[in-house]
C-alpha cells in the first residue's frame, strides 16, 4: 500500500498577536505542522502498520517547510517531497503543485485533513481528486475497512452520518475526531533527520502559480471588553457575580 499524506505548515496561531492600534496580526511566529495534518498522518501510519507499504508526506509552502516537515517524518512518514517556494499559495495553486507531485508516483491512497486550522478553506481533497480524476471521500471520521482494492469509511456530515465505499486509488479527507495523533519519542525525532526529503520548486514542476484573488485587508475584529478582574473569597466573588448577573441578564 502506497499512501501519500498531504500536510500543511501553519503559523503557530496561539502565538499570533494583534497590534492593538491597527488590528493587524503579527506573523513573526514559528510555524508548525497543522493539527489536522497530524490526524491524516496518524491514519496513514495505522494503515501501513496493518497492510505494509510506504507513507510519503507531501507539502507545498515556505522555505520553513524544510524544518516543519521533520515533524511529519518524526511521526512516522517514510520520506517527504516538499516544494518550498510557494509561501503565498492559494488552494488553487497548492492543488496544482501537489497534484504534479502525486502524478509522479502511483499512490493507492491520498489522505489529508478536511481543512487546515488557519484558513479552513477545505478545498484540497476535492481539487486534487478532480485534477487526478479520482473518487473522493471527505470528512471521514472512521475508516471501517481498508484493503489493497477497496476502502469503507464513515463520513461525519452536518446533519447525517454516512457509510460509503470506494475502489482505490482514492482521495480521503479526515476530521480531527478520527484519531489521537501519536507524539513522537526522542528517538523518532532523531531518526527523522536521516529520512529522505526531496525538495523541489514550483518551477521544477512546471507550475505557474495563479493569483486568483487580492487580499484587500486582513484585520482582527474589534474586541472591546471591560476585562474587569474579580478575585477573592468564593463567597464574596459569588455575591458580586450575582449582582452583575441580575443587572445584565
Amino acid at each position: 500500500m502506497k499512501i501519500a499524506v498531504c500536510v500543511k505548515e501553519v503559523y503557530n496561531l496561539e502565538q499570533v498577536k494583534i497590534i492593538k492600534e491597527t488590528r493587524e496580526p503579527i506573523l513573526d511566529v514559528p510555524k508548525k505542522l497543522d493539527d489536522l495534518s497530524r490526524n491524516a498522518l496518524e491514519e496513514a501510519i495505522k494503515i501501513r502498520e496493518k497492510l505494509g507499504g510506504e507513507v510519503v508526506a507531501i507539502s507545498a509552502g515556505s522555505p520553513d517547510l524544510k524544518k516543519t516537515i521533520k515533524e511529519a517524518l518524526a511521526m512516522g512518514a517514510d520520506r517527504a517531497v516538499i516544494v518550498t517556494d510557494c509561501s503565498n499559495s492559494t488552494p488553487e495553486s497548492t492543488a496544482l503543485i501537489l497534484s504534479k507531485i502525486l502524478e509522479k508516483d502511483s499512490y493507492d491512497l491520498i489522505i489529508m485533513g478536511d481543512a487546515s486550522s488557519d484558513d479552513y478553506s477545505g478545498q484540497m481533497a476535492s481539487r486534487i481528486a478532480e485534477i487526478l480524476g479520482l473518487p473522493q471521500i471527505t470528512f471521514v471520521s472512521e475508516i471501517k475497512e481498508v484493503s489493497e482494492e477497496k476502502i469503507t469509511c464513515v463520513r461525519d456530515m452536518d446533519d447525517y452520518l454516512e457509510v460509503v465505499e470506494a475502489d482505490l486509488p482514492c482521495v480521503l479527507s479526515v476530521t480531527n475526531e478520527i484519531n489521537e495523533p501519536r507524539i513522537p519519542a526522542l528517538k523518532d525525532i532523531l531518526k527523522a533527520s536521516k529520512k529522505p526529503v526531496e525538495t523541489l520548486s514550483a518551477n521544477d514542476l512546471g507550475v505557474e502559480i495563479p493569483q486568483p484573488y487580492e487580499i484587500i485587508e486582513n484585520l482582527a475584529p474589534e474586541i472591546d471588553r471591560r476585562q474587569e478582574v474579580i478575585e477573592g473569597d468564593a463567597g464574596d466573588v459569588a455575591r458580586k457575580l450575582a449582582e452583575i448577573i441580575r443587572r445584565e441578564a
Binding site: V16, R23, P25, S117, D118
Partner: peptide, 14 residues
Amino acid sequence: RYSLGGKTIAKLRT
C-alpha cells in the same frame, strides 16, 4: 471570511 483560525477577518477580491 475568517482567517488565521478566526483571529482575523480577511477581505478578498476576485
